[in-house]
Amino acid sequence: MKNIIELEQTSKSFIQGDRIFTALKEVSLTINKGEYIAIVGKSGSGKSTLLNLITGIDHPSCGVVRVNGTDIHQLSESELATWRGKNIGIVFQFFQLIPTLTVIENILLAMEFVNAIPKNERQQRANSLLEMVDILDHGDKFPTALSGGEQQRAAIARALANDPDILVADEPTGNLDSSTAMSIKAIFSELVANGTTVVVVTHEGIDDSAFDRIIELKDGEIVLGITNASASEE
């Protein structure tokens, strides 16, 4: 299977006051195309840092971050923005929809930024995405008129606007009730089934048999990498 995300001896350190804090310590990791990955760990374990490095939101202090064939640690902020738009969809815990745009406009905005989808196809694609996440009726509403679950669905639709190969989600269900969370997870599973690589940072993932792999971080290091089968066994 083709590697889509590769980290080689990647570290990330921060300066906090007069001391240096290393959030990620020489992590090496490979994620294959079409895998459904959970990154778990306690608060401060480095999982969000790992996610930020994969999405290019943050730069590593050392090491290699290669995503979809691109050494993204070598890209500038500007190059990263374009690259990110084309290759990665990001779903945030607090949805982070633009409050002054309607749901469908949020999706169209992402398409407008990346310009990968032809203009005459954008509206139709946006509607399809909304239908896929089951909020087609809410397309013309502003985010504040939607429930938390609906907002997260909208955020997923926006993340998929430019048909990225990878979807990264940071605690996507952390702010939702359990039944809504279940429906979001179902969407992710469906995406994986369609060939999208999905990387989710989660607290509850350890119990989810849907993941292909669960990667656990502790103090900036990978302490456990288990496959779906072994997870089931445990």
Partner: peptide, 16 residues
């Protein structure tokens, strides 16, 4: 500022 962050996260360049 946070909206700028979100827009950059979903593909907005500095020109945008």
């Amino acid at each position: 500022i946070r909206q700028i962050g979100i827009m950059k996260a979903i593909g907005a360049s500095r020109t945008h």
